[in-house]
Simulated scan of single mutants.
Amino acid sequence: MTYRNDPYDPKQVALLDPEALSRAVAEAEKAFAETRDLDDLAAVKHLHLGDRAPVSLARREIGALPPAAKADAGKNVNQARVAVQAAFDARREALEAERAARVLREEAVDVTLPAGRRPQGARHPLTLLSEQVEDLFLGMGYEIAEGPEVESAWYNFDALNMGPDHPARQMMDTFYLETAKRQVSKDLVLRTHTSPVQIRTMLTKKPPIYVVCPGRVYRTDELDATHTPVFMQVEGLVIDKGITMSHMRGVLEHFARVMIGEDIVTRLRPSYFPFTEPSAELDLWWPLHRDGPRWIEWGGCGMVNPRVLRACGVDPDEYTGFAFGMGIERTLMLRSGVTDMRHMVEGDVRFARAYGTEV
């Protein structure tokens, strides 16, 4: 290493030799030319333009020269520095042009091609399960019946033997709609069950009647793990001569085994509904319940009340029938092990993919 007070000695300032500077420039040009991309170029830059590069080290040695030699040495070092920088800039410009051309080539878009399909989602398991129920009963000779979700109170309550004072008609249980004058109407409701479809069917179709009525219904329930204000229900109605409770039990046994499993155990527990007499709750024995084996209520059923038959113009002395209703959400919970009903309404495609097994 040389110092400012040293006498001029060419051996101590060998980096300032014109041949050494020429070699430094040639090595830099060669190194830059051999780089394949901008990352390679950045990796070798410090070797030729950094603080420890030969040209940078030569510049530091200028101070050790006598005053008469400093001017020429400085000129030579600056020329070498400019040459190295020019070689670097030229190679960077060429690599940037190559990258731009490659991007244009690789990312070219043919606007004449058909648009790509969006990522596929998944059909909701409630929809799939509802269709499976429909297929089951269609195979048994039933028909599918549908009706409006906005119903008159007569179809939703009165025709089903639910008088004006019935608790279910209170606003704490039923969504009543407003009229054009922004007043709540007692005659227009969001249906609380799909039973109005049974009424409409009996009013428009003569027995024998074998129908199932799937669809959305509405209750003033808070959304939690086991309740939702909007849910899906499927109801069945059979009106024919000689229909008894044994026919109903056989249909529901078959329904439960197809939906839940062949080894499912059922029972009919006496209950009360205004539109059936006698009435029962259909319970399923559930050994895998998180709190231990127990009976789980699946839905209500019973023989159609003669008052309901008369309201629809059907002679109860000639025809009898049964009706039943099950929640699709409850069926999915029992069938697939869903523990929180809120998962069914959040719209997360991961839930649908996990429980919706077929398309």
Rank of each mutant, 00 (worst) to 15 (best):
P54S: 09
E29S: 14
L21N: 05
R60Y: 03
A20R: 10
D40C: 09
H48Q: 05
D17C: 04
L49E: 14
S22A: 13
A68F: 00
Q79D: 12
E29H: 06
A68Y: 03
V25S: 04
A69W: 03
L49S: 11
L16F: 05
E27A: 14
K30F: 06
A42N: 09
G74H: 00
P66N: 09
A58P: 04
R60A: 15
V25R: 10
I62E: 03
N76V: 02
G74I: 01
A20N: 10
D37G: 12
R52L: 07
E34R: 15
V13I: 12
D37R: 05
F88H: 15
P67D: 13
A83R: 07
A80C: 03
L49M: 13
K30R: 15
V25Y: 04
E61P: 07
A86L: 13
D40H: 09
F88A: 09
N78D: 12
I62Y: 01
K45C: 07
A71W: 02
K70C: 03
L65G: 03
A53R: 06
E27I: 00
N78Y: 03
A42S: 15
L49G: 10
V77N: 08
K75W: 00
D37C: 00
A71G: 08
V84A: 09
L15G: 13
R59F: 03
A73C: 02
A73V: 00
T35E: 15
A26F: 03
